[in-house]
Nucleic acid binder design. Structure first.
Lengths: 114, 114
DNA sequence: GTAACCAGTTTACTAATAGATACTAGTGTA
DNA sequence: TACACTAGTATCTATTAGTAAACTGGTTAC
């Protein structure tokens, strides 16, 4: 009986870890949130996401693309422009981010309020 | 105008990062979830959270205690037993974990289903 | 032609995270 | 007295994450 609960619990942990892995690291959420405000070019993101280096931005965008949260579009202009946007799937993070926000805000208040 | 939105966005990011920082790492969530199923002693947790080492468990529990998610109680028995439990505040993570679970599960299905 | 912008990549480094293993100090059991 | 269990700590190593700064190759504006 207790064994079954344990197994169930481990199985349930997998998707939770997945979600956390995708979002963790210093830069993924700032990038995602920046893209919530509209599609952006590489250099635009580099400027808006304060403190990020080109290397990290490049790497994180690739990760996000792999997980299909972000779409990379090469625009047929001269010179070529590259636009990054959230996929519909990326946008589905909104509720989760809101929940992170709500809890984090509560936490801030509690820690500061001591 | 655009500046104001950017500032607002950065301010909003802080609590989101806080929440993520507290939850990220390999072991914090497994420990929290184990404690959702009831109070546990150190060695119990070491056995239940598969793969964790004593060192990591010790460190993670301290972090969680610092953030007031977990309470450490030394029981007045002989030999001394130490019990870890979720605080009321720790329990307030339930909704957030559920949201992580829901999103993570969707993600799993999408990735596997390809 | 040269200076500047775009979309990155490369190299070299440091810092943070995690793992393996051994160890301590106290208690309980046979 | 020997062995095992509890609640950890200490030391060392490996891996991963992140930073800094230079560099590429193409484009456009002066």
């Amino acid at each position: 009986m207790a064994e079954k609960i344990k197994e169930e619990c481990e199985k349930r942990l997998l998707p939770v870890r997945d979600a956390l892995d995708i979002l963790s690291g210093k830069w993924k959420l700032p990038i995602i949130v920046a893209l919530f405000f509209g599609n952006k070019r590489f250099k635009e993101l580099e400027r808006e996401v304060k403190g990020i280096t080109g290397k990290m931005l490049s790497k994180e965008l690739k990760d996000l693309e792999t997980n299909q949260l972000v779409k990379r579009t090469v625009l047929d202009t001269s010179p070529v422009a590259v636009e990054y946007s959230l996929t519909k799937y990326g946008k589905s993070l909104e509720k989760l981010i809101t929940e992170l926000y709500k809890w984090g805000e509560k936490h801030r208040k509690m820690i500061i309020g001591k």
